[in-house]
Computed example of a mutant assay.
Amino acid sequence: MTKAILFDISGVLHTDNQPISGAVDLIKRLRRQSIPMRFVTNTSRATCQSVLNELKQMGFDIKSDEVFTAPLAIKRLCQTKGYRPFCLIHPDLTPEFSDLEQSQPNAVIVTDAAYLFSYDNLNKAFSLIMNGAPLLGIGRNRFFKSEGQLQLDAGPFIQALEYASHVEAQIIGKPASSFFHEALTSLGMAATDVLMIGDDVASDVIGAVDAGLQACLVRTGKFLPEDEAEASAANAMIADSVVEAVNQAFDLDF
């Protein structure tokens, strides 16, 4: 039985800051019915506060403590471990890590860094890893969809560093079970009572199923038709949109 929902954000609630049809009203109705929700994302082009602000500007009724981002999880890990990271990250994400000591780096953080994925920056990361610095990745997402086009995400670059250094990255965001479990802890729910709705079959759907959650793949955002076979093999639901996904989960008609 579904008692709470984890929503991926980009591609599920909106695409290019345009809400998916019916999504804004859906969140309002779930709120009125007191259904617990968390909004989880591997986004690496915005701080946690920016994500919240953007969602509110689109009309979504979301509270600050309901947003879970992979960059924020990485930051918490650095603070706990005393890491001074070399941040190979997107410029828009820089404020999230600005209060961390970053001189004489002893760790490497890799998110979607866009044009900053230069040879010099990748080689600096490689050198640090070869000297013992842990490689911290936001996720293994291969690509994302923006402005109607698929674009490379952080995953391919993380894998390149792993291949070169023979070191396995510690993945902090989806599909890591620890990321899902952190959201579950905040909900106070058992994994089997929570539904994850996402557009990425690997990170959102299979990651959630591996962590013990229910999962639903939506045919919006980065969804590709060939993803359906993987979702079905994982016993996940498939829906045309987030609205239909919630309808299926709760047997409702929003």
Score class of each variant (00 low, 15 high):
Tyr115Trp: 10
Gly82Phe: 11
Lys81Val: 06
Met58Ala: 02
Ala125Met: 06
Gly82Asn: 09
Asp99Tyr: 08
Phe68Gly: 03
Val110Gly: 04
Asp120Cys: 12
Phe126Ala: 03
Phe97Val: 08
Thr69Glu: 09
Tyr83Trp: 15
Val40Pro: 00
Arg38Gln: 01
Leu122Glu: 05
Lys75Ser: 11
Thr94Leu: 08
Ile129Thr: 14
Met130Phe: 14
Asp61Thr: 12
Thr47Glu: 07
Thr41His: 12
Lys56Gln: 08
Thr111Phe: 02
Ile62Val: 04
Thr111Arg: 01
Glu54Gln: 12
Ser44Lys: 04
Cys87Gln: 00
Asn53His: 10
Ala114His: 08
Ala113Tyr: 05
Asn123Gly: 05
Glu66Gly: 03
Asp120His: 15
His90Cys: 05
Asn131Thr: 14
Asn42Asp: 07
Arg38Ser: 00
Leu128Met: 07
Glu54Cys: 09
Ala125Cys: 05
Met37Asp: 01
Ala125Glu: 02
Gly132Asn: 15
Pro105Met: 11
Phe68Cys: 05
Phe117Asn: 09
Leu93Arg: 01
Ser103Asn: 03
Tyr119Ile: 12
Met130Thr: 15
Gln102Val: 13
Thr47Ile: 11
Pro95Ser: 13
Asp120Gly: 06
Thr41Val: 11
Lys56His: 10
Glu101Trp: 10
Phe86His: 11
Ile109Ala: 03
Phe39Met: 03
Tyr119Ala: 14
Met58Pro: 00
Gln49Thr: 12
Gly59His: 05
Met130Lys: 15
Leu72His: 09
Ile74Ala: 13
Gln79Cys: 11
Phe68Met: 03
Tyr83Met: 05
Thr69Asn: 11
Glu66Trp: 04
Pro91Thr: 08
Pro91His: 07
Val110Arg: 05
Asn123Asp: 15
Met58Ser: 02
Pro85His: 00
Thr94Pro: 00
Glu96Gly: 04
Asp65Ile: 09
Val67His: 02
Ser50Met: 12
Leu122Lys: 04
Asn121Gly: 08
Leu100His: 06
Pro95Tyr: 15
Gln102Cys: 10
Leu77Ser: 08
Ser118Lys: 12
Leu122Met: 13
Pro36Lys: 10
Thr80Val: 14
Phe39Asn: 00
Phe126Gly: 00
Ser64Met: 01
Asn131Tyr: 12
Arg76Glu: 10
Asp92Gly: 02
Ala114Trp: 09
Gln102Met: 13
Ile62Ala: 00
Ser44Tyr: 04
Gly59Glu: 06
Tyr115Gly: 07
Thr47Pro: 02
Val51Trp: 06
Phe126Trp: 01
Pro85Asp: 01
Tyr83Arg: 03
Tyr115Val: 08
Asp92Ile: 01
Tyr83Cys: 04
Leu122Trp: 05
Gln57Ser: 10
Asp61Ser: 11
Thr80His: 13
Ser64Asp: 06
Pro91Phe: 06
Leu116Trp: 03
Thr111Trp: 03
Asn42Ala: 07
Pro36His: 06
Cys78Gly: 03
Thr80Gln: 14
Leu100Cys: 08
Phe97His: 08
